[in-house]
């Protein structure tokens, strides 16, 4: 079992996208946003399971919207990042920035292990 505090790369992306979309975050729009920004396409089924998992971990919260005429009259489920989710995103980002900070800029400018 992965720990409560670990966050996979896809999960991180999804949480951030939910944040970007704000009021309009539901699975189809999340999927579109992801593919637009990352040029990475994810199947709807996989996205749904990820969203479900994030909600179970307590990083996401969801509520049902009003039923609409399109979509066969079915309501949308809107998502929002919880306080816990924001906290863990912050934590992940801090860790990352910490690493970036400690890299000596000259290290990346030269190529090591030349053959």
């Amino acid at each position: 079992m992965s720990g409560r505090n670990s966050l996979g790369e896809l999960e991180e992306l999804i949480l951030l996208t939910v944040g970007v979309l704000d009021q309009d975050a539901y699975s189809v729009s999340i999927r579109e946003e992801l593919s637009k920004r990352q040029s990475r396409s994810i199947s709807l089924g996989a996205l749904h399971t990820a969203l479900y998992r994030l909600e179970r971990k307590g990083h996401l919260d969801s509520k049902l919207g009003e039923p609409t005429g399109k979509r066969g009259g079915k309501p949308k489920r809107y998502f929002a990042v919880t306080a816990q989710g924001q906290q863990i995103l912050q934590q992940v980002n801090d860790n990352r920035l910490g690493l970036w900070r400690d890299i000596d800029p000259s290290t990346f400018s030269s190529i090591k292990f030349q053959k």
């Binding site: 539901y26 699975s27 189809v28 709807l44 749904h48 479900y52 049902l64 609409t68 399109k70 979509r71 066969g72 009259g73 079915k74 309501p75 949308k76 489920r77």
Partner: peptide
Amino acid sequence: RKVDMEGDFTE
């Protein structure tokens, strides 16, 4: 989750 998921899939 069936109700809203069905909506997403249909959309």
